[in-house]
């Protein structure tokens, strides 16, 4: 505490000394006056990172400043999230995050943050999940999978990008609703996981639509309200009689306690980014879609999913 106060005082002092006469001028300028740091809690090069970088580029243009990306990886996103939570809420630290470290991880184990440690700015993206099968799979519809699994409990296996990830929990929820038993094989990320599916080492895999269309994998159902544009042949789960949705989603957040004018400025910029054609095109090439929710709706959705997943995690005994 003393440390922070001291640092804050020192910073103010020195800023004052250095800027001297121009200080008043700087104060008068509108936020942001210097580059904004964007933390991405996943390693460079992953889907989240590429998404984040595309967002940073657009956001920088709208805000009229540089948005510098820093990757802070580890612990399924939790290390980076913890850092964001304890950053200064001065509007110069923001983060693009997927939902899993917000709605799943805090329910799985004790973490130095929870869903309430952040100010929500806006949801930006969402891509529906698709249940893919191995290349020579006999299953053509979700029903066939369900029937087979019901007759042979524990015979089928499904892969996921890791324990506690969104696809893992989506699949567990499906199995819970349908009262099925499948073996869960966790991989470290979609790369190894999808490769194992392509090689036929696991039977099923929850992935985004792009993974399925680019790699020409067969699939049995899309967990979305309507059919996915890049897979028009694929029937949704609802059409097949199972009213279930699942997607990978996320958005822009900041440490809790932003000043109102900063939050308003960021929310406005976020809205502009989400509406821009360039952003839409870039996200499309990454296999995801723009899905905008404003600050309030985003926060409400996070709480809703977090509560639902907490129940599921509890029921399945996944918590550590």
């Amino acid at each position: 505490m003393i440390n922070t106060t001291f640092r804050f005082t020192a910073r103010t002092l020195i800023t004052g000394l250095v800027l001297g006469a121009t200080a008043a001028l700087v104060q008068a300028e509108t936020y942001p006056t210097r580059p904004v740091t964007m933390v991405i809690p996943f390693p460079a090069g992953g889907v989240t990172d590429t998404l984040g970088r595309a967002t940073a580029l657009q956001l920088g243009e709208v805000l009229g400043t540089n948005v510098v990306v820093t990757n802070k990886q580890g612990g399924a996103g939790t290390i980076g999230m913890a850092q964001i939570a304890k950053s200064r809420p001065d509007g110069y630290t923001v983060a693009v995050v997927p939902a899993a470290p917000l709605v799943n991880q805090p329910n799985l184990r004790r973490l130095p943050y929870d869903a309430d440690s952040f100010d929500y700015i806006c949801q930006l993206f969402s891509s529906p999940l698709v249940l893919a099968t191995k290349p020579d799979s006999p299953f053509k519809t979700l029903n066939e999978v369900v029937e087979y699994a019901r007759e042979n409990p524990g015979a089928l296996s499904y892969g996921s990008p890791g324990p506690g990830t969104l696809p893992h929990l989506a699949m567990e929820q499906l199995l819970d609703v349908l009262d099925l038993q499948l073996r869960h094989v966790p991989f470290t990320g979609d790369g190894p996981g999808v490769t194992a599916l392509m090689g036929g080492h696991v039977d099923l895999y929850m992935a985004t639509g792009t993974v399925v269309s680019d790699k020409e994998l067969p699939a049995v159902a899309a967990f979305a309200d309507s059919r996915i544009e890049r897979l028009p042949e694929l029937a949704t789960a609802t059409e097949q009689g199972y009213a279930l949705n699942a997607d990978l989603w996320g958005g822009l957040i900041a440490p809790k306690g932003l000043a109102d004018e900063h939050k308003a400025r960021l929310a406005e910029a976020c809205h502009t980014v989400a509406g821009s054609d360039a952003y839409r095109v870039q996200l499309k090439s990454l296999g995801t879609d723009v899905a905008y929710r404003d600050a309030e709706a985003f926060q409400a959705y996070v709480s809703k999913v977090s509560a639902a997943n907490a129940k599921l995690i509890d029921k399945l005994g996944l918590a550590q």
């Binding site: 390693p43 460079a44 090069g45 992953g46 889907v47 990172d49 590429t50 595309a54 790369g191 999808v194 490769t195 392509m198 680019d214 790699k215 870039q282 090439s285 990454l286 296999g287």
Partner: peptide
């Protein structure tokens, strides 16, 4: 379309863009 290592994973993203 499956990256062989973390570096090609980044390259994959770059190529997709």
């Amino acid at each position: 379309g499956v990256p062989g290592d973390p570096v090609t994973a980044v390259m994959l993203g770059a190529l997709t863009i």
